[in-house]
Design a protein around this nucleic acid. Structure first.
Lengths: 240, 240
DNA sequence: ACTGATTGTCTGGTTGGACCAGTAACCCTA
DNA sequence: TAGGGTTACTGGTCCAACCAGACAATCAGT
């Protein structure tokens, strides 16, 4: 059974290196096989999968339950479990897997995430200015410092946008941010991701524009907040 | 054990009335308890839950696996399984559950979904005009007819926006649409949802504006497509 | 009295095997 | 050849263990 991919040990919940629960390893293998098109149509039966994975059927079932929750497969008692068409059925929470698939980095998906982020982030800035001008002052305390190391910079950027989105008073926007940030986290530090990461770092360092947004929010100037945010976020989107 | 909520039998996969797998029923109960704040902090142990639900521990485990996949709980071997803070951890795929929680309709969440839809839909129209002007012609065939019954109207609207978003050539936008449509589906036909539904139906009937968008896309006029879409989609957002 | 290792008991993780409950394909009949 | 019934397969559930990690209470050494 293959090792635990690094991107899975990177979360809040660290585990001893290489120690992912069996059902988690099976889940990952099946997910990877579905994403790269190796696995289509009907899945092998749970009993077969258990045998090929050298695991118990229960472990396989737990893995499949998660695929089902992500709407990657459709399971029916008595019938076969089938792989669903991703564009038609999958939800946005698939982004992290999509961005950093098995081994590779998906440039198109990553670009899409950045575009979506620009779209939603700008709208969030607009709504925040309309509804929570008070957040503007708090944002001024979250501006980056030129001397900040990269890690701190990324954390600060996440904190800034999280606070801004919280100012929309809209849970859906908040959840969308979570999903997008998870997608961006998945970009990781592979050499293939270098361009994306440098662009994002540069964006995070633009204290002047982040400050402009904060001021626009503070004075309730929704259009200015939205447009400035849009301009800033667009700077990280690679040209097509 | 409580009956299968109607919104769960409404999907593609119909089941005999009242027949949801046991692990699914448990999943629903736990999810509802988490969403309405009844269940916080540490969950009871799997063995306890199995006993209180009158089910086997495996059924409970499968339910918990799905909660874990939705990032509603955090589970750690040896330690307790804990409920995660929703705004901080949950992903956008939670929308359907959020909109139509246990028994109630969440107006704030529903409004948020509509706002997010307007934001993303408008941007998708813009991108579609930039990248796939050819889609404009196809959209003209998907315009609503004044004589259409409501059900057909809703299906047609979904088809229109799906085609438009497909024109962005961006899987993330496509997935976002799936998630948002799932959220809107969850609004359902409860009396409390009447205002939302009538607004959405009215929007779907605005053939002229849908046609304007299609034409703007056909001639590659991204700003016009985006602004018209934004105006149209805004019409379904209730005033604050 | 305080600190620190130890131990027991709690948690989730995994296994095996058995049986129930649907589905679907096959075969046999009319 | 069309119909229905048998049968072999699918997923769903259960029981009864045992493994492995976490945690708290306990007891020894200082």
């Amino acid at each position: 059974m293959r090792d635990c991919p690094s991107r899975y040990a990177a979360g809040v919940n660290l585990r001893p290196v290489g120690a992912m629960p069996l059902s988690g390893q099976i889940h990952r293998q099946l997910m990877d096989a579905i994403l790269d098109g190796t696995l289509t149509g009907a899945l092998p039966s749970e009993r077969e999968l258990a045998e090929t994975f050298g695991a118990n059927r229960h472990a396989v079932r737990e893995a499949i339950k998660r695929l089902q929750q992500a709407r990657l497969v459709e399971v029916q008692q008595g019938g076969a479990t089938r792989v669903l068409n991703i564009p038609d059925h999958a939800g946005l929470d698939l982004l992290p897997e999509l961005v950093a698939g098995p081994g590779r980095l998906n440039h198109e998906a990553t670009t899409g995430v950045l575009e979506l982020r620009a779209c939603i982030g700008a709208d969030a800035a607009r709504l925040c200015a309309e509804r929570s001008p008070g957040v503007g002052a708090a944002l001024l305390d979250l501006l980056p410092d030129a001397a900040m190391p990269d890690a701190e910079l990324a954390a600060g950027s996440a904190a800034y946008w999280t606070a801004l989105v919280a100012g929309t008073d809209s849970l859906p926007y908040r959840l969308a941010l979570n999903t997008l940030l998870a997608g961006l986290d998945a970009i990781g530090d592979s050499p293939a991701a270098k361009d994306f990461m440098t662009a994002l770092r540069e964006e995070s360092r633009r204290a002047d524009e982040l400050e402009q947004i904060a001021h626009a929010i503070r004075r309730g100037d929704a259009p200015a907040a939205g447009e400035t945010a849009r301009r800033l976020l667009n700077s990280s989107i690679p040209p097509r």
